[in-house]
Design a binder for these strands. Structure first.
Lengths: 221, 221
DNA sequence: GCAAAAGTGTTGTTTGTACACCCATGT
DNA sequence: ACATGGGTGTACAAACAACACTTTTGC
């Protein structure tokens, strides 16, 4: 659970970020293709070593910006993993994992150098470096349960959206279909969203009303 | 969030444990009185530096045994804190916090040396060293929510107990009174406990039936 | 007028909450 | 007989789940 740079003896503190987005009706995670170092030619979560004048939260936010260019999104600490499987042996240190929810439309991947990023569907991942599959699974479970009692979905959608778009986000994350009427009633009666006033016309059918989140910040409902 | 030993420059990885128990109808946390070092004469959570051939979970379990003598109890990682307020300045490193649930009857505090342990009611804590108050608060919140959808209370009670004793544990943790009939119905219908067969006579009143947890290991209900 | 997605209500079930009295025992 | 905690049932409210048809638009 670490990036290019890797050193040795003193304990390492790595920070990795599970960056999630809903793209084309699927929940996806941003992975980096490793073109050198341990686990060469595998995919891994973006991450790096803690650079000690910064806090853990700052390190996670920095990594997120480096990889996606986005800053003001939902970002939460997930879990700290105590064993870092590293190629053959096991490296000493810990990896503090975070997860972030981004709108794919706002993301600008750094297509730069040798470390190629790409979005992968969370349900069909290859074996990842550093045992990262477990980290992604953990993030998806956490997100699923948070969906039910918080408004975190705000971080996956633009200011204005249709109820169908919101429902698609929920369905992609929960990986099951929801009843349209019950879903709408619930979202509205809990007050997490409210009508934005306008409508959007798109295709040969009735225009959809637009909504916004009542608050674009984490709220428990 | 660290104990006697404290070093410097390279990042530190400390492990601290919020050890909770219900004693005399109150939820209490085990604290250590610091008789030297930073925060001398304050109380702090038990903890220490990660000793690198061991994993985080092992370090937490070791600390727990050192302080209480108990081993096979509920122990879960809580959160990793990235700033370690340390007396005046701020030390570089992280503190990985765990929380454990123990039966006070099984605990043998090490009344040893200079670091005196004692149980404190979680609702009336003094200002703790290393910003530990926030850690305790976090643990109590987590425990409260886990009570509602898991059987973790098993770790706070002996094999056999009465329904009133179980209810007292819940009330101590949630810090509010529960309805006896609703509580009993819920516990039994969810199948988390079952009758043990016997009864216990204690005082000038009807004897109480004894119950046991269906499973003495973490289960989501 | 047809295809396509938007929008809307009712009913039954389950879950949770409020609430008051009798029972078995020791003294 | 009385004080003490153990034990039980019912009625209402709220939350959730299942389910099908009409509306507005572009072509």
């Amino acid at each position: 659970m670490s990036p290019p740079g890797h050193s040795l003896t003193p304990p390492l503190i790595a920070v990795v970020v599970v960056i999630l987005s809903v793209i084309e009706d699927g929940l996806r995670v941003l992975l980096i293709h490793r073109s050198a170092g341990p686990f060469r030619d595998s995919w891994a979560l973006p991450g790096g070593l803690l650079a000690p004048p910064e806090s853990l939260d700052q390190a996670a936010a920095r990594k997120l910006v480096e990889e996606t260019g986005v800053g003001d999104v939902y970002l939460e600490q997930l879990y700290t993993f105590g064993e870092l499987p590293r190629g053959d042996a096991t490296e000493r240190g810990v990896a503090v994992a975070y997860f972030a929810l981004v709108q794919s439309a706002q993301v600008r991947l750094r297509e730069s150098d040798t470390w190629q990023p790409a979005w992968h569907n969370v349900h069909v991942l290859p074996p990842l470096a550093f045992g990262n599959n477990a980290v992604v699974d953990y993030a998806v479970r956490r997100l699923r349960s948070k969906l039910e009692y918080t408004n975190v979905a705000y971080s996956l959608l633009p200011r204005q959206f249709t109820l169908s778009e919101l429902q698609q986000v929920y369905e992609a994350i929960l990986d099951r279909e929801l009843d349209k009427r019950n879903f709408r009633r619930r979202m509205l009666s809990l007050g997490v969203i409210k009508p934005a006033g306008g409508t959007r016309m798109e295709g040969a059918h009735r225009p959809a009303q637009l909504y916004t989140f009542a608050r674009r910040e984490p709220v428990t409902i």
